[in-house]
Each structure stands twice: as structure tokens, then as C-alpha cells.
Design a protein around this nucleic acid. Structure first.
Length: 458
RNA sequence: GUGAUUGUAGUUCAGUUGGUUAGAACGCCUGAUUGUGGUUCAGGAGGUCGCCGGUUCGAAUCCGGUCUUUCACCCCA
């Protein structure tokens, strides 16, 4: 045999059963998106490199899959850079396209490009794969699907409230109870940094704070000091390290702490508006928690920040995230277009549902009936019946060749086909069908209309 | 990008201090059974021991590189 084929690191094949389960998640999310008034768009799997570069920070740039130019790309490359083996700078001369890294930036590009055809506020959802040149690990792949919903052209906080309900609805429908929707606000993080006089170190500060539950108070302190934040400043925000109580209690504490920061106070007000209203509306199965250590997507989020954690006890990174970005389209030349959006990590949701055994109701991808093939005359007779069954919505098929009975039965058995229909000379003469129930092993003769009924009622 | 870890039949795994022809279970194929699957029985096929190189009389076994798996860091869905 030739060398065994394989697929690239961090990619996967999906079997029919896996695809059925993924479809179930996709269609659940899709139907909720539509219920909430979103419409679907799609964008190319690859964009101009310039569209993507610089939008995700230095780390993000490194993780973007670049596509080599066609033709003699080295011949056209900058000779000096090539000579010096300067990969970083060489990239822009040998690659001008890249696989999309997420759905948000392509969406921003889309909005700017189609601004004159779009009715604002524009609510779109998008379910497509994205690629990251990351090292794979648990729940982390180099090709995976994102399911995004965003609204641009409205700075109303009711959008945030809508998205929290959307998260709650999707996870409730999937039977995934107890997910925690964590929320923070970029303005609060800015306010805290301002209070401690570390506004210039906002990103370092928040990235360190974000690790609190992972490396603890001491670890965070150490990392902050390492980034050049003074101990005195860290002391000022020490209460954040042991921040407890209800959302309302946390809001009150934050309000006090940030009283002298205009931006921080604005952040508290925004959060309070959202939390108050969600409390008044109520959620089905999810919980909404104010988490001041939450710091994601700081490269473009300006207001609310969301992250969805799997139910307690499931070891899995976030299964969704999102936030508000006041100026995402600004980078493409369209100012004053506030947007807010959320994303579902399909592949991780799949793993969580699998771990919690919540896939029971997904229909197996198999036919309901197999007709045994005894030869061309019988096959013709069977095919006529199959056409009728299919018109009745019954998934049915004929075994394609007159193979040995045992082989045909075995095929039905392995594919878990519940019914087998046998039509030989005898049945053809009597205009009947012998139906075998593969589970019980019992078989009976029926007329065509009875056959349909028996299978439908099974 | 950093640090670990994994790789032997289709699958899950054995394989002694380096030593003849690399094993098992399950799966697969054929038959017992020419119109009846799951159970049973009998027989059979299937391996460049991830790949490349090195050490050795001799390598699945030791060493180096590389790819791959899994995990942690970074970052993130």
C-alpha cells in the first residue's frame, strides 16, 4: 500500500454521525438568529492580507494563515529582504492574500464596502469556518467554525440586552443548562487603569487581571509588576482580586471605586442598565455575571465585553464571546458606526454537548427502509414502491446489486436500518411486500398502502 | 513561538537487558447457511514498527532530526 494519507495538523474529518450532530447545533443557532431578526451573509474564505493584518494585535498577525502569491513569487520578492531572510518583512512581498481569522473583521469590511446598500441598523449573522495557525490543544483547532451575530449602526444598550437573551435562548434550546454569561465593560477597565495611573499600560494591566482565576492574586501581582506597574498602584485595586457578592453589590463597589473617573463611571452606568433590565426580564437557564477580570478582544472592544463559560464541571475554555466596538469600521474609513456582536464556538459547544451526553435527540443519518435486491425484475418492482415511499417522506433505498441475502441483510444491520422489505417472485405475484422489523426480527406481508402506514407509525 | 508528550495490523494495545519468522483482542473477508442480519463454529487476509539518518555483527527497542497526537504556556472560539 502507498504511504498512508493524512490531514494537516489541527484539522478534522467529520463522519456522517458527527455531521448530523453539528447540523443540529448549526440549525438551532440559525433558527434563533432568525427569530431575533438577523439575516445571513457570507464572505470569502480569504481576504486581502492588508484587510486582516494589524487588526488582531501582534500575536494575531502571527496566527494568520498567509497565502503564497501565484507564479514566481520569489522572483518578484524584494531581493534584500530575501537575502537577509527577514521573514516578517518578506511576507508582504510574497503574500497578498490570507485566510480569514475571524468573522468580525470581514464583516466590518463588508459593511464599509456595501454601506450604501445596507439598511441600518444592520443585523447580520454569519456561520463560516475561520483559520488560525495556532498550536492545537483541547477544544482548539486550526480550522473551526464561528457563528457570529452582530448589529451595526445602533449604540443602544438594548442591543446588548438582546444578545444576552439570544445566548440564553440558544443554550436553553440545546439543553445546555447552567452556562455563565460573563460581562464586563472596557470603560471600567480603562477607569481602573486611570485611577491607578496606568492608563498607558491598559492592555498589560487587563491581560494580567484576566488571569486571576488561573494564576491567583499573587501571580497577577507578579505579572503586573513585571510589566512595570507599581506596587502602590496594584494596592489600590486590591479589592478587585477578591471581588464577590451579587451583581448589584459589585456595581455599587465599582461605582465608589471609580467615582473620580468619568469613563469608569460611564462604564458602570452602562453595565447597570443592562443588568437591571436583564434582571427585570429574567433568563431561562443561563446566568449573567459581572466579572471585572474579563478582558477579551481589547484591540477593538470599547464597551461591553461578553464571554460565555461552559456549565460548571466541564473543563473547556469559553464557548462564546463578544462585545461592543465603537469604531470597527473606522479602520476601513467609515466613522461613527457603533457595532456590537457575539460569537458561538461551534466546535467547543459540540465537545461540551458530547461530554454531557446531550445529543440524544439527534436523528441518525440513515434510511428507514432497505429493499432487498433479488434481480432486475424484482428491483423494478421494488423501485416503484420506493418512489411511493419517498413521496411519503420515508427515507428508503434499494440495495444496488443482487448480492447474497446475507450480505444485504448485514448492510441493513450495520447501518441500523430499522426495516427491510423483501420482494421476490411470490410477492410480485401477490402484489405484496414482506416487511422485516430488524429489531424484533418479525416479518409480515403487506400491501403497498399498508406498508407506508406501518413504517410511518413505527 | 516556548516546554513536555505520543506514534507497532482497519481499531485498541502487548512486545523482556538490542537477538531467529513482530503478537493479542476486536474488526474485516470466506465458508458452515443458494430467501433472512445480530449469536456460534471453522478457515483466511492484513504490518516499510510514523518518516529520514546514525550507533551496532544485529534496532520496533539506543541516539539525532523531522512529521504527527495530546497537554501546558503565550494567545484565543
Amino acid at each position: 500500500m502507498a504511504q498512508k494519507p493524512s490531514i494537516p495538523k489541527g484539522t478534522r474529518d467529520f463522519s456522517p454521525v458527527e455531521v448530523a450532530k453539528r447540523d443540529y447545533i448549526f440549525s438551532t443557532i440559525k433558527s434563533v438568529f432568525q427569530t431575533f431578526g438577523f439575516q445571513s451573509i457570507e464572505t470569502p474564505s480569504f481576504e486581502n492580507l492588508q484587510t486582516l493584518m494589524g487588526k488582531y494585535g501582534e500575536e494575531g498577525d502571527r496566527l494568520i494563515f498567509k497565502i503564497l502569491n501565484s507564479g514566481d513569487y520569489l522572483g518578484k520578492a524584494d531581493a534584500t529582504l530575501l537575502e537577509n531572510k527577514d521573514s516578517q518583512k518578506l511576507i508582504s512581498t510574497i503574500s497578498e492574500k490570507a485566510l480569514r481569522y475571524d468573522l468580525t473583521v470581514p464583516f466590518a469590511r463588508y459593511v464599509v464596502q456595501h454601506q450604501n446598500e445596507i439598511e441600518f441598523p444592520f443585523k447580520r449573522y454569519q456561520i463560516q469556518p475561520v483559520w488560525r495557525a495556532d498550536r492545537p490543544q483541547k477544544g482548539r483547532f486550526r480550522e473551526f467554525y464561528q457563528c457570529d451575530a452582530d448589529v451595526v449602526g445602533s449604540d443602544s444598550l438594548w442591543q446588548e440586552i438582546d444578545f444576552i437573551q439570544l445566548y440564553d435562548t440558544v443554550f436553553s434550546k440545546l439543553g445546555l443548562e447552567g452556562v455563565s454569561i460573563k460581562m464586563n465593560n472596557r470603560k471600567i477597565l480603562s477607569g481602573i487603569a486611570e485611577i491607578i495611573g496606568a492608563s498607558d499600560k491598559l492592555i498589560d494591566f487587563t491581560v494580567a487581571l484576566d488571569k486571576l482565576d488561573k494564576i491567583g492574586k499573587e501571580g497577577v501581582t507578579k505579572e503586573m509588576i513585571g510589566k512595570g506597574i507599581s506596587e502602590e498602584a496594584i494596592e489600590k485595586v486590591a479589592p478587585l482580586f477578591s471581588f464577590t457578592g451579587t451583581n448589584q453589590e459589585k456595581l455599587n463597589q465599582l461605582q465608589e471605586m471609580l467615582a473620580t473617573s468619568e469613563e469608569g463611571t460611564k462604564g458602570v452606568e452602562e453595565l447597570r442598565f443592562i443588568i437591571d433590565n436583564i434582571e427585570a426580564i429574567g433568563l431561562q437557564t443561563a446566568s449573567l455575571t459581572l466579572d471585572v477580570t474579563l478582558a477579551r478582544g481589547l484591540n477593538y472592544y470599547t464597551g461591553a465585553i461578553f464571554e460565555v463559560g461552559a456549565p460548571e464541571g466541564v473543563k473547556m475554555g469559553s464557548i462564546g464571546g463578544g462585545g461592543r466596538y465603537d469604531d470597527l469600521t473606522g479602520i476601513f474609513g467609515l466613522k461613527d458606526m457603533s457595532g456590537v456582536g457575539i460569537s458561538f464556538g461551534l466546535d467547543r459547544i459540540y465537545l461540551v454537548l458530547e461530554e454531557l451526553n446531550l445529543f440524544k435527540e439527534v436523528a441518525q443519518p440513515r434510511p428507514d427502509v432497505l429493499f432487498i435486491n433479488f434481480g432486475n425484475d424484482e428491483a423494478l418492482y421494488a423501485t416503484k414502491a420506493i418512489a411511493k415511499l419517498r413521496q411519503g417522506g420515508i427515507k428508503s433505498e434499494l440495495y444496488p446489486s443482487a448480492a447474497k441475502m446475507k450480505k444485504q441483510m448485514m448492510y441493513a444491520n450495520r447501518r441500523s436500518i430499522p426495516f427491510v422489505v423483501l420482494v421476490g417472485e411470490k410477492e410480485m405475484e401477490e402484489d405484496t411486500y414482506t416487511v422485516k422489523n430488524m429489531e424484533s426480527g418479525k416479518q409480515m406481508m403487506y400491501k403497498l398502502n399498508e406498508l407506508l402506514e406501518v413504517i410511518i407509525n413505527s
